[in-house]
Design a protein around this nucleic acid. Structure first.
Lengths: 216, 216, 216, 216
DNA sequence: TATGAATGAGATTTCATTCAT
DNA sequence: GATGAATGAAATCTCATTCAT
């Protein structure tokens, strides 16, 4: 946990440190990241970093927490639903918000990747990633209750696979970012959702849904 | 590229270096990996490393190439096929071999992860991973030709997503390795294949296949 | 010298600072001691230390002075005497008080050690330790006057040796502190005194005294 | 333990490192000593030190071991003896050699001091100091056997006190080094021995011996 | 009167790489 | 052909001290 002073720090400087650290941790593993580069980019002294944080791990955890926190607040939760169709509609809506947010935070994806890579090692970071996974697992559990999500595979596995699918499609999109045709980005969440349905929904539901989709 | 001398090197020593490096690169990112630890583990001299390799990156690329090469030779290609059912049967067979091989090479998964992480940075490593992806993309292309694989999404995207799904299920399995019930590991390729079908096959095919599967 | 403000400081805080510093300086040399650890333990601000003290050396000198001062006040001086027997009886009495006081101040021994180590370097601390030595030297001089202390060796040397003997026996006792049998601690001053007599007294006196002691 | 390479190192450089380290450790506690100062004084690179030693503690232990080893080899053991007079004659002879050796190695005393201070903390250094103490304790044990050493106090305590007395007299002498009158240094071992007899011998023996000494 | 934010120097240790032999 | 001695830069982190408020 960062020392309380950090919260009281001048907004500009606080953001400068977190941004510089996010930039660094988004592009390098925790081990390979350099506090020297971070302070150089943030424009703070060597001592300052250790005045606000216990150590490198503390800074890392803080950056991850901040990123996840901002994401959660910005994206918000999933709308309530009472049947399978409602579940998938709500999930589509959620995906839209997620996509929009990630598009405006280029470091977020890399940051989450570093976080999940380090989750098995760093205790604090592990808690954050576990919480994120648990939230999604719960979501899937509620999907099962209304028949929107298959019940023949462990929720934990489904959650992990869904995360991976989302990550892979994100990256694919990101690499083509500059050569996207107009409208392609807007269509993305829907296409991503269909992929997720394939993985998560009972097969008949996915089949029915996709048939309708194609017809329209 | 490692100097030609490396190929002529005593088998035992060559393997020792590659094994030690694989162990290191499997657990740490390229940047965070330490050549010091590698030579210590391999029991070779400092100079030896730089006598056989240009630098750390060269060693990394060689390790990746070697790992991928060994995997390809051990796993072999996919059997030929003439229709959709044949494609999936052949793919199942391929998965079985892949799973078996990965189970015997605990470093392989971590190594591939490091390789893909670094692919965007290191030129050589990028080529290897690109080749792997291309091979799988071609496979999918042949699947499309016989109607086994959907044609409504770019093959590149499908390949990436399939890799991600495979990776996620692998990891999930790996974490439960010690608490697996007997028979569970043997059943794994089939379950994994079903997940892949969901993503890769035309939806009607996936639905039909799964219905049969459940019936049996 | 600490700023005058320090004397006017709230009792609780003044003691907190001195105690924390004593704890630190008792376990580490002056150079290795950390003002950061001191203020952390004392619960005072960084600035406070430098508001009350010139620098680390000033704090050290103050701690030493305070410790020595408290010891002197608590232990008191040696009773007056008119002959050799009186001298040694008075010294035994003094040792009893010293032992009792040291037993209740676990930091004192370590503190004095740090003080003597630093005495050659730090000017102020050197004065305090010199004063302590001088007091004991004077004591020995009065012992010489009544024939209780040998006159064939320089008083300065005798004082130093006596200090060393006391320190060694103290440490020896301290290490066995937890495994002491009942009564052993109470008997300690007398045994220590006999050792000191051996060193300090004319040999005939020491011999006579010990013969009586053994007889009783 | 220093890496084997260190033993194979060029004599001049090996000595330069050990001397520089001895100089530093003789004047500062282990914690306060600076490897930076050591390499600066030795004229070796920063990496070199860690090429030869595991860490600071390893260097310290090596310096201590080297110093003790050289001292032991140079001073040699105590001559054999069959009665009390022989014991003290042999000890006097030993003291002479010790004094001579210490006089030529100005760092030795400070080094031993640092070693004993750190003995409770550093494992390796603890072994060396313990060995030294044990050797002296054994010596005293043999003295007890021939009636040269008192048997009414624990040997461990006697050894510690004797060390302390020796150290105090050494220091006292050292401080007066430059103002010593001719012959004073040569007379030192005898005076020191008398002090040790006072502490270590049965009182009658010490008394008899000193009476003779004075008569002569 | 009192604070705590801030810092640059310096601590120990590891790094990838070079080069004389 | 092969080595290991050697290095300076960089790593993370702590230091005693200053100063604006």
């Amino acid at each position: 946990m960062p020392r309380p002073r950090f919260a009281a720090l001048d907004e500009r400087k606080r953001v400068a440190i977190l941004d510089a650290a996010a930039e660094e941790f988004a592009h390098r593993s925790f081990e390979a990241a350099s506090t020297n580069r971070i302070i150089a980019r943030a424009g703070v002294s060597k001592g300052a970093l250790y005045y606000y944080f216990d150590d490198k791990a503390d800074l890392f955890a803080t950056v991850i927490e901040s990123a996840i926190g901002r994401a959660e607040r910005a994206i918000g939760g999933m709308a309530s639903f009472v049947d399978a169709a409602g579940f998938w509609a709500a999930l589509l809506d959620l995906y839209r918000r997620i996509t929009t947010f990630f598009a405006g935070e280029p470091n977020l994806a890399g940051l989450l990747k570093s976080a999940f890579d380090d989750a098995g090692v760093g205790e604090i970071v592990g808690l954050h990633t576990a919480r994120l996974l648990a939230a999604f697992r719960d979501l899937l559990g509620r999907g099962v209750a209304v028949g929107a999500v298959r019940d023949d595979l462990p929720l934990e596995l489904l959650a992990r696979v869904a995360f991976a699918v989302g990550d892979a499609t994100d990256r694919w999109l990101l690499e083509r970012w500059d050569s996207l045709e107009p409208g392609e980005f807007e269509a993305y969440p829907e296409r991503a959702l269909l992929l997720h349905m394939r993985v998560l929904a009972p097969i008949e539901l996915a089949e029915k849904w996709e048939r309708q989709e194609t017809a329209s």
